[in-house]
């Protein structure tokens, strides 16, 4: 008899485990809250302010998705993750989206079983050094001690770069950006390396940013973007097209200021489809309502507005659009049509 119970338990466990994976969209709706994995603190990308409210470029993606799915940009639970814990958090279902300046690579997509839904920032790895060191190129860093966040692609790029250039270095592994800042400022390492955008954000938080210089070499391609678990295409579509909606909104000149006005006039059929003003109901195809994209854009503005408000040239971080301009302006942002 015991054996029957035993087998029954096994079968039940197997069944429930099998069903648990799919339909993140339903889970989020039922929970009425979006769990979003973000950085533990990188000014401009994801950082809590004095009152504990999160803001930043990566956080804006979470807000847009929450607005599209739940109708409220504030229904987000931010889960801070380190370079080491982020993938486990996503794979285990602790978060629904990972929006944490994560590089899209082959092995993460194929072997770690994630789906990158797009790129929200085209980046590359750089080095930051103290001006007094008198270094003007990364090629002069032979023999240097370099602080690096463990568990990131930058760690592997660094090894490759120094090997290709036949130089040696001493790595100082650190776990979070805050720890890296502290080590770097204490002089425990000569150079700090991470994505160029991260370097700019880190430097902006220093007491005297002008004492530090970011070297001109960009040693890798780092397309950063939000990602979800593989195998739930519906949810991946929701996140992908929310990101695309933000980018398309900038392309068509839809801003948080004129969105109401633009959704009334239906001069451009593509804008009408995007904002749910016309006959076509794109929202129904991803099991959302008609105005999902409108709410996503209203959450924090279009891609350009988010960029300008969080990491753009008018902020302390001061990043230029560069590769992250629209394709019409010489950048790489190019969203597929809403049709």
């Amino acid at each position: 008899m015991n054996r029957t119970v035993f087998l029954g338990t096994l079968a039940a466990a197997g069944l429930s485990a099998g069903l648990a994976g799919a339909a993140t969209l339903d889970d989020v709706k039922a929970r009425d809250e979006l769990n979003c994995g973000v950085n533990t603190g990188l000014v401009g990308f994801a950082a809590p302010d004095a009152s504990g409210a999160w803001s930043g470029f990566d956080v804006a993606i979470c807000k847009a998705v929450a607005a599209a799915v739940l109708g409220d940009a504030n229904k987000v639970k931010y889960v801070p993750t380190t370079g080491q814990t982020r993938f486990t958090a996503l794979a285990s279902g602790e978060v629904d989206i990972l929006s944490r300046n994560t590089t899209w690579t082959f092995s993460r997509d194929a072997d770690l079983k994630f789906t990158f839904v797009g790129v929200n920032y085209y980046d590359g790895q750089g080095f930051m050094v103290n001006k007094s060191l008198g270094v003007s190129s990364a090629k002069e860093l032979d023999g240097a001690t370099i602080c690096i966040q463990t568990g990131t692609t930058t760690e592997l790029n660094l090894a490759d770069y120094f090997k290709t250039n036949n130089m040696s270095y001493q790595p100082v592994p650190i776990e979070t950006n805050a720890e890296g800042e502290q080590q770097f400022l204490a002089g425990a390492c000569d150079a700090y390396t991470t994505d160029a955008s991260g370097l700019a954000a880190t430097r902006a938080a220093f007491a005297n940013p002008d004492d530090f210089v970011i070297l001109p070499e960009i040693i890798s391609k780092e397309p950063l973007g939000p990602l979800v678990r593989q195998g739930d295409d519906e949810w991946a579509d929701v996140v992908r097209w929310t990101l695309n909606a933000l980018i398309a909104a900038e392309e068509y000149g839809i801003t948080s200021a004129n969105i109401e006005e633009r959704s009334k006039s239906t001069d451009n059929p593509e804008v009408a489809r995007l904002l749910g003003a016309g006959e076509d109901d794109l929202g129904a195809m991803i099991r959302l309502d008609k105005e999902w994209a409108k709410r996503a854009i209203m959450a924090g503005g279009n891609y350009g507005e988010i960029f300008a408000a969080t990491i753009g040239e008018s902020t302390p971080i001061g990043l230029a659009r560069g590769l992250n301009a629209q394709w019409t302006q010489g950048g790489l942002l190019y969203t597929p049509p809403f049709r």
Partner: peptide
């Protein structure tokens, strides 16, 4: 054990120690 195996299957992952022979690619101080 069964739950683990099932969940790994759901995620499309296998259980193998083959990665130990792959190139590490990182440096140790």
């Amino acid at each position: 054990v069964d739950n683990t195996i099932q969940n790994l299957q759901t995620l499309g992952k296998d259980f193998s120690f083959g990665f130990l022979t792959n190139r590490a690619g990182y440096d140790i101080n």
